[in-house]
Design a binder for these strands. Structure first.
Lengths: 145, 145
DNA sequence: GTCCTAGTTTTGAATGATTCAAAACAATCG
DNA sequence: CGATTGTTTTGAATCATTCAAAACTAGGAC
């Protein structure tokens, strides 16, 4: 149940060198139920239980969690930043160009070398990020409706 | 010379169904000299010749040009939108995580199949966008200085 | 268990990028 | 050359995000 998750979440926070506050636990829980929530979505999910939580706190928490490596921030064009708990695997995302919905795309193992660019313009590359654009099932079904 | 380019630019605009205004020509010229300029950069480049150009006009023009397919808009995380004239080839970009500089990366032919995702979460995919992150030559040379 | 202190959150305000709306204007067609 | 419709100006508003100072609290120390 939800109650049993909390100790684990508190542990993760402590392990990452962060204080285990109610808000932080709540933010992590929010992200586990809403895999690609933005700051507003997280706030909305947290408010029922912790009504005094401010927007700034959410940004602060998400920033701290991101810095600590507990969450990953994704910023698709035209959308506010989204946050997710799936970290440590370099999976990618597919964004619905109609409604902004986001889906996970597992990184196809063995394909990694293909992401090595042919010309680097002299840049030193550290990461390759892939974003797919298309239509989510709902929008593909009824684009206008 | 710069003067000889103008007729061509005007032609392109007309061909795209857009009126050939001074500002639009100037914006196109700005983008040809500054390959990955943002709205502010374009405005700065246009102002010397057309001092009355407003920020909103630049946004309007860039939007119109983008819709018409004459320019491509790229929006790296943490950076204002950039615009470029290189269209029609699906090349990608490398962004300096230190200073935000952007370089072009030619799409490695033959690698395209690797961009086919393994699982699409039910989405219909139309585009795959790759962004590389790293350090530009300058920042790699002296990261702190 | 209580106190202290550094790390957190609240409160309040500001910033930057971008967009909206209405009025003034100008490129193109006839 | 005049009308029409698309474009730009002017002026203001919106959204996501960040800054700063004061109030607060988790967790270690005693």
């Amino acid at each position: 149940m939800t109650t049993t998750e909390m100790p684990d979440l508190r542990e993760s926070l402590r392990a990452a060198g962060l204080r285990a506050t109610e808000q932080r636990v709540a933010v992590l829980q929010a992200l586990s139920s809403q895999p690609h929530a933005d700051a507003a979505g997280v706030l909305a999910a947290v408010t029922p239980t912790l009504p005094d939580t401010s927007v700034q706190a959410v940004y602060g928490i998400l920033g701290a969690l991101t810095d600590a490596g507990l969450v990953r921030r994704i910023e698709p064009a035209g959308s506010p930043a989204r946050y997710e708990l799936r970290i440590g695997d370099n999976h990618h995302h597919i964004v619905c160009s109609n409604c902004g919905a986001i889906g996970d795309v597992d990184c196809a193992v063995g394909h990694a070398p293909c992401l090595t660019p042919s010309s680097t313009s002299g840049f030193t590359i550290t990461t390759a990020e892939v974003t797919y654009w298309g239509l989510c099932p709902d929008c593909a079904a009824g684009p206008v409706a």
